[in-house]
């Protein structure tokens, strides 16, 4: 494929990457840079969860735990055992993958939402362990003094350098997700969501595919946790309660299920909206999130990225009901 054809095919991705990577050149204010930095790590988690929910039709209610594995894995290994941060990130990601496989294999064989239940329980157990295993995690005191990421003399503790690194990785994950959705695997995953039996009879190994995507989402979350912790330099269990798992699900749902770009818009929206709401009264933040979850599910199942289909939907709504094709939910 020629360069022009490639550029045309991936115009959206290339444009978005250009904007994301050039942003620090125009933003001098570290406050905005820090919001963008958190957006990058949120995007990493959201991409994985988006694949799981949108492509495999499964929900994880304990994704905070996978972020915690990455974050605490990096924090503990670098501060206590002086492991190289990059190696620590890799080991933590492998651990997350292993745990995801153990959780996924038995539950994803079953029809229904057993993964949701299992991840909910798993998330709580991880949270309890973070608090109780004081010898390892320092309990509720949290771990401070976590070093920045470096390569040789290149220090990614600086806001701009961190921005490029974190967004570079996030964009890489975005590209991977887009490719996955386009690939044969992606098509078989969507088949799972729509018609499991049909997919099965066509020879798609449904439960294996689901486990695969769950493991990928756990790895994305773990890597995000590692990046987060090398940026914020301090970590405590509070950040990884079930509430955070719910916030993650909200991010993906608001952005839009079934479309990788939903994760992008969801992440951006969920990090900038609270900054905006702050000006009024933050007590309402959760009320707004909750109502938006309901409203989006009912009226806008495609989330923010689904907004572009709204005109068509409206047109259909005003046609006589018996002329309607079946709702494509």
């Amino acid at each position: 494929m020629g360069i022009v054809a490639y550029a045309r095919k991936h115009a959206a991705f290339l444009a978005f990457s250009a904007v994301a990577m050039c942003a620090p050149l125009f933003i001098g204010n570290k406050y905005y840079l820090s919001i963008l930095a958190f957006t990058a790590t949120r995007l990493m988690v959201a991409l994985g969860l988006n694949l799981l929910m949108g492509q495999a039709g499964q929900v994880s209610l304990g994704h905070a735990a996978f972020v915690a594995i990455g974050a605490y894995g990096s924090a503990v290994m670098t501060t206590r055992w002086s492991v190289n941060p990059w190696l620590a990130m890799l080991v933590a990601a492998l651990l997350a993958a292993g745990v995801a496989a153990i959780l996924g294999v038995p539950t994803l064989k079953l029809r229904g939402h057993y993964l949701a239940m299992a991840t909910l329980g798993f998330g709580e157990i991880v949270f309890i362990l973070l608090v109780q295993l004081k010898g390892l995690t320092l309990g509720t005191d949290g771990i401070s003094g976590i070093p920045s990421l470096t390569i040789g003399s290149l220090d990614f503790g600086r806001p701009r350098a961190y921005h490029w690194l974190a967004w570079g990785v996030a964009l890489l994950m975005l590209r991977m997700s887009l490719n996955l959705v386009d690939s044969r695997v992606g098509r078989s995953l969507r088949a799972l969501d729509r018609a499991e039996i049909a997919a099965l009879s066509l020879g798609v190994n449904t439960s294996f595919r689901k486990v695969q995507v769950f493991v990928v989402s756990a790895v994305f979350a773990s890597v995000a946790g590692s990046f987060y912790v090398h940026y914020i330099h301090y970590i405590s269990p509070d950040s990884f309660s079930v509430t955070f798992s719910v916030v993650l699900v909200t991010t993906v749902v608001l952005g839009g299920l079934g479309n990788v770009w939903g994760a992008v818009w969801g992440s951006i929206f969920m990090l900038f909206l609270p900054e905006y709401l702050k000006r009024f009264n933050q007590d309402y933040t959760n009320l707004v999130f909750g109502l938006m979850l309901i409203v989006v599910m009912i009226f806008l199942p495609g989330g923010l990225v689904g907004l572009r289909h709204v005109p068509a939907r409206l047109r259909r709504r005003f046609t006589p009901p018996d002329a309607l094709p079946a709702e494509d939910t």
Partner: peptide
């Protein structure tokens, strides 16, 4: 307001110092 959340506290203090 940091919403009792360390992450928000980091954003907040960065704003106070920078902006």
């Amino acid at each position: 307001d940091d919403q009792t959340n360390p992450k928000e506290a980091v954003t907040a203090v960065t704003k106070l110092l920078q902006q």
